[in-house]
Amino acid sequence: MRRYLSSASVVIILLILWEVIVRVFAVPKYILPAPTQVIKALYIDYNLLFGHSMQTVFEALAGFMLAILAGLALAVLMGLIPSVKKTFYPLLVISQTIPIVAVAPILIIWFGYGMMPKIIVVALVCFFPITVSLVEGLASVDQDMVKLLLVMGAKPWQIFKIVQFPGSLPAFFAGLKISVTYSIMGAVIGEWLGASQGLGVYLTRSMHSFLIEKVFAAIVVIAVLSLLLFALVSFFSRLIMPWYYQKSPWQG
């Protein structure tokens, strides 16, 4: 906890400053609510926010899982078969230039207002960082380790299992950490365009009623949820790669 002390104090100082400015200049609530007003909104709408959050988190996690599965499959294929990489890597990059906000309405036309389009939006957002990081991870594995296993008479799948896959895990988890923080945002974007439940719905409703303190409350919830998911991925990364977090004697 102590290592977050300096970050926490910066946040607290900023919040106090914000509160003071809003009060001193009497900024109206519909322009910028004070932190205390946001906290009040959080308190009042606690149950409502909780319900919406559950929906959003479910969509985010489902989409994230989908992205992991698809990313793993594609990245492994690209990592193992050079021609697949040559063909699909540029396409993958091009696919990223398509704006998600433009695709989301189409998904709603295709899949309706249920959960499906939201999950797909999340998966689309998360897919790219996961796949790219794993592909790069596989490509940057120490080739001398591969040689060592070749000399030992290992077969290609054994080399993959023993060297290439474990060696690319740190990059893979780096990609997971980036994409998991996008996942909640992706779900919220999906909900914006039409849904009956979820933080995106809460956001649009508050926006339309000019309840700006509730918009801020939703932002806070989204940030906290993203942080929690990030912590979850960090936990798994420590669980799966204990060797990666071990300090060398010369690192002190």
């Binding site: 001398d144 380790m145 060297v163």
Partner: peptide
């Protein structure tokens, strides 16, 4: 042909995850 000899390369090449 590989797999006939044991070869200790100049680098130790220990696998960090094992």
């Amino acid at each position: 042909q590989k797999g006939h000899v044991s070869y200790m390369l100049q680098k130790d090449l220990l696998l960090p995850w094992r």
